[in-house]
Every structure is written in C-alpha cells, then in structure tokens.
Computed example of a mutant assay.
Amino acid sequence: MYKLTFSLIILALTSCTVSNTANSNNAHSVPHKIKPSIEIISPEARLILDNDAAIKTLSSDFTWTEGPIWLAKEGYLIFSDIPNNKIMKYHPAQGVSVYLENSGATGLHQGDYVQGSNGLLLDQQGNLILLQQGDRRVAVMNTPTSSPSNNFKTLAGYFNGKRLNSPNDAVLHSDGSLFFTDPPYGLKNKMDDKRKELTFQGIYRLAPDGNLQLLDDKISLPNGIAISVDEKTLYVAVSDESFPHWLAYDLSSDGKVSNKRVWVDASEFIGVAGEQGMPDGMAVHSSGLIFATGPGGVWLITPKGKILAKIKTGKLTANCTLSTDEKTLYLTAHNTLMSVDLK
C-alpha cells in the first residue's frame, strides 16, 4: 500500500506520474498517458468483467489515495489520502467530503513523520481498523463508523519491544485474526530512517487475544495482503523494483504459514510504457478471483495465478475494494478515486 516519501511525491507530481506516490511503485517508470481501458486476456474474466465496462473517475482532488473500504451500513466508501493525513468519504449521491482529519499521524510520538492512515478495514464488530503510518501502529477507532473521531486504541505498535516500521495493509480472518504488512514506506527516509527500529520488514498475525506473531521477516518490501475465500491461502504483494511479484503461502487453521512461493511475477513490466506501478492492494471476489493492483492498473487473477484480465487505469494504482453487492470495483489510483462496473 503506501510507499515513496513525501519528497518523492512532490518530485513525482512534477513529472506527471507518481509511483505508489506515497507508495513505492515504480518511481523510475516513464510517464505515459493512456486512456483507461479493459483488456480481456481469458474468457473466464467475462464471468464478472466485460471489456466495455465503464471506468469512471469519481474525483481527482487528492494527493495519494489508498485503503478504500465500502461501509455497507452507511452506504458510502471511505479511503485514505495519506500525505494529507485524512480519510475521505465518497457518497454516490452526495460526492466527496472529509470523513476524518488526522487519520494516521496524531502526535503519538514526538518527531514522527506526518503520514496519514493507509489501509482501512472493519473488524467483526464493525469497528474501523486503521493502519496508521505516521503513528506506526495498527489502531481501532473507539467510536462508531457513523460518528468518526480521533479517539483511537492501539492494537499493535511494537514487536519485541521495538516500534513497527509503518503498518501498511491488513486483512481479517474469520477467527478474528488480523494479518498485516509492515514495510518502511511511511518513514521519512524509508530504509535509512534513523527512527527505524526493526532490521526487517515483516508480515504479522495479530491473534484475537492480542498476541503479535511474526510470520515472515525475509521480504524486502511487503505491501498489499489478502486471504483466499476458503482461507487456505495468504497472498502478499511485494513492491520491490528489483523483483516485483505476489507471494502465496499455505495458511493453516491456527494462523501459521508455509509453502511460500511466487504466485505471480510482474518483473517483465518494469519500465514498460503504460505499465507504471507495482504489486499493491488486493480485493478478493466471492468467486475466488482476485483483483490485484499492479503494473498498469488492476489485474484479475485466478487462485492458481492465471491472469484473466487487466484494467488499465492510466495511473499508478494503489488499492481496490468491492461494493457489498460486488457490482462495483472502487480503485484508488494516484490522486483519484475511480470505479469499474462489474457484472
């Protein structure tokens, strides 16, 4: 989910495209303006997506958008605008407004970088969980989603006595476990930041009892994360420019991972015009197919790693989510919020 530092964001904006602007994605990509389109690679994609489906830009007044989530009770979408330290709201009938100020940098620790929230999701009780880059923690909002406030409780902020890097994206298991990634993208100088306390970038499981378990510390830049419909596979996006790819792990019923493997390799698209971006956020459809943001926009992938289609957004695309009825895919793409109609 959120990568480049703010200085790189400014640089990227002046050259027309950004890499996961606040997200790592492809700072070296050649700016290449393309018209949004859908490429059907396999007929299987047409079960949920047509090549003539409408791709809409809903709003474009942001800096770097991330973490979209549909709030079914409220009937609207919320998403992070990370550099502006805000969560925004998109209501289909009312448009865009501010949902919450100071969403990820609340002054929890003096001297922290002022990055807002990144990933957003709901727990089993419907509470809003935030991956707060500025505060470097996973937190829950202590008020209902219908009444947002800056009243937060820390769920995870330290591992073995050391502060987390900048929690990025998360997914909830049906048993209440929270799986999340912790790259350094929210730190001012990423790997070289003097405030970085951990020597690695981890994938974690926060158990229902609050115990934080490290699952993998061997990934350079873990990013988006998702769980398969049957909850037997954990997917992780790796936004490393030297080897951009998605990983898959076997996931056991007790939350342990094994059989780590490359699920999809995106290396061939690095530096290709119109293919800007890196593997990032994901959304799992009830059919089992996975929408995965990556080079060029959003890829539609089977659980076995077969690429069925690509939604070409023309922008660096950070994340996506489905509406409750799965008729709409919402995309956070650079400074915009977009949507795609599904079947």
Rank of each mutant, 00 (worst) to 15 (best):
R205P: 01
L342K: 13
L100D: 03
L221S: 12
G104D: 05
Y99I: 00
K162N: 07
I301P: 07
V257Y: 11
S323M: 01
H245A: 12
T321M: 02
L308M: 09
K218C: 06
P184F: 09
P183A: 03
D240G: 07
K306N: 12
D135R: 03
Y113E: 12
Q124C: 04
W263L: 13
N189Q: 08
N223V: 05
I203C: 10
G274V: 06
A292W: 06
D217G: 15
S80T: 02
A266K: 11
G296Y: 10
N189F: 07
K304E: 15
I219Y: 07
D216N: 15
F243L: 04
I55S: 11
K327V: 03
S29D: 15
V138T: 08
K256M: 11
K86C: 01
D52G: 03
H91I: 01
G176M: 08
I82A: 03
G75Y: 02
D280S: 14
P36A: 13
M1D: 11
T199E: 15
T293Q: 04
Y90D: 01
L121H: 05
G281K: 12
S287Y: 02
T317N: 10
Y330M: 00
Y235T: 07
T63I: 13
T332Q: 02
E231K: 15
N151F: 00
H32D: 13
P183F: 05
R137D: 02
G224D: 08
K306R: 10
I38G: 07
T336G: 06
L308S: 06
N223T: 12
L212W: 04
F152I: 04
L49F: 08
Q213P: 00
V298D: 13
G255S: 12
A318K: 06
P184D: 11
S323T: 15
P244F: 13
F62E: 07
P167L: 04
D230T: 14
K256H: 11
F6S: 09
G176S: 11
I203H: 12
P208H: 00
G126M: 03
Q133R: 12
N168C: 05
S97L: 02
S252G: 12
F291S: 13
F269L: 14
S146P: 02
Q213N: 12
S177P: 01
F243K: 13
Y235V: 07
D265T: 09
T181Q: 10
M278Y: 15
I227P: 08
F62P: 00
L234F: 06
D61K: 14
S59G: 13
I48D: 08
G161I: 02
G314D: 08
A72R: 11
T154F: 05
A266C: 15
E197Y: 05
E101W: 04
G126F: 01
L247F: 14
P303E: 15
I290K: 13
T302E: 10
P36M: 05
G119F: 05
D175G: 13
L337R: 01
S258A: 15
L342W: 11
Q110A: 08
L178V: 15
D135T: 04
S149Q: 00
D192P: 01
Q94C: 02
D280P: 09
G107I: 03
A207H: 04
T57C: 08
P183H: 09
N20T: 06
E268D: 12
A53E: 03
T181E: 13
L11I: 09
Y249W: 07
L100A: 02
A54L: 10
V284S: 08
G271R: 02
F6W: 04
